[in-house]
Simulated assay, not measured.
Amino acid sequence: MLLVVDLDGTLVDSLDDIRFGIRAALAAIGIAATDDLIDLCRRGVGLEVFYRRATGHAPGAADQRARFDRFVAAYRDAYAASPHDTRAYDGVADTLAALRARHPRLAVAVATAKRTAMARQVIDSVGLAPLVDAVVGSDGLPAKPDPAIVRRAAAAVRRPLAGAVMVGDTDRDVGAARAAGCVACAVTYGGWTRDELAALAPDYLLDRFADLLDVAALA
């Protein structure tokens, strides 16, 4: 049995720290941190998408690579030095503990757009490490909704994807879950509104992380 869970906006509220990093990254390339750009932080977009939206240029273009590298480095440095206001959402630890007690063979894997090392630091800092079997970041993998990260998460804990449940807070999480053949659960307290997520028709809408206890595949 496998549970794959997104990190930011699903397990943890990291929005303030992400905003801190993005402001520094934008400053490093001479772009003003407008409200529209800062609002993207809650939408769960990757740094490549953020850079394209901020500059109007593809980060992989030959004349943009050095600038994009500065953007990424500034973000990562600032995020690492941020005030660290990230916290686990209410009920996350208790729900994971209850699921593990209910299903002793349940494997819990985090699949996140963050780099693996950074994601592990976050999991450790909020006290969730004892409840998680594997943390899989985006290192060298295509971004969600490509299912590659979900498949790697399953491989990391040696569980089949058949019957697996995936939980996230954006359209990319729902898309990755579907592409990997997982039960798709969308939490409504993260970066996307309930109405936006409902329009994607996931298998379950969860207003609280604890609602995961009522998902049939985990009953």
Results as ranks from 00 to 15, higher is better:
A73L: 13
D69Y: 09
L218M: 08
A119E: 02
L141C: 05
Y79V: 11
A199W: 00
V5E: 06
P83W: 11
A184P: 05
A201C: 12
D139N: 01
A32D: 13
H103D: 10
V92Y: 04
R158F: 12
P202F: 13
A74M: 12
A73M: 05
H103T: 14
A143W: 06
A101M: 11
R159Q: 15
A66W: 03
A98Q: 15
A61Y: 15
D211P: 07
E48I: 00
D195F: 08
D214N: 10
A28M: 01
A81V: 12
V12N: 03
A119V: 03
F50T: 10
L99S: 07
R152V: 09
A156C: 03
D8N: 14
L212E: 02
L106F: 15
V165R: 04
A199C: 03
D13E: 14
A148C: 05
L213E: 04
L7W: 08
Y204S: 02
I31R: 06
R105N: 08
Y89F: 04
C41R: 09
F50I: 11
L96F: 03
I149F: 10
F209D: 05
S14G: 09
L7V: 05
D35E: 13
D139Q: 12
S82A: 15
R65G: 00
P202L: 13
A54M: 02
A179Q: 09
Y89S: 04
R151I: 08
D124C: 05
A201V: 13
A134Y: 08
L26D: 02
G56S: 08
G21S: 08
R52T: 14
Q121Y: 04
M1L: 13
C41V: 08
D94V: 07
R102Y: 03
L47T: 08
Y204H: 11
A80R: 14
M118Y: 05
L40G: 01
V215F: 05
V183M: 04
L161K: 07
D39K: 06
P104I: 07
A32P: 15
D207R: 02
F68P: 05
A73S: 10
G191Q: 03
A54Y: 00
R67G: 02
R208P: 03
Y51Q: 01
D169F: 11
L161H: 07
G9L: 10
G44Q: 01
R172F: 14
V165N: 12
R194A: 02
D63K: 13
F50L: 15
A98W: 09
D139Y: 05
A164I: 01
L15G: 12
L131S: 02
